[in-house]
Amino acid sequence: MGPKMTKEMTDTITNRVIEIIAEQAVLEPGDVSLDQTLEDLGIDSLGLVESIFAIEEAFDVSVPFNANDPSESEFDISSVAAIVAAVKTLVTQQAS
């Protein structure tokens, strides 16, 4: 397993993921809350694929995601909080 994350690191990840999602939703980051779903935010399938690309670029990770059946992917996209948690896991795993 990779190194343990500091609180500062996890806050940075949370903020960056929210920024990426907010940009897709054409909202200010302050208007995106963790309990919202992508559907709540008006992000469609193309917006989702673009968000995943932006996450991969921002954190230099590879996200296991198949647009063919997003709900079956290992990467949980059920809410903003779920995406943030999934990105933290990936950053920890792939940092090793």
């Binding site: 694929v49 690309f53 995601f65 198949n66 063919n68």
Partner: peptide, 9 residues
């Protein structure tokens, strides 16, 4: 280019 869309098996 196609990989980007994430629709390939």
């Amino acid at each position: 280019a196609w990989e980007g869309l994430r629709v390939m098996s």
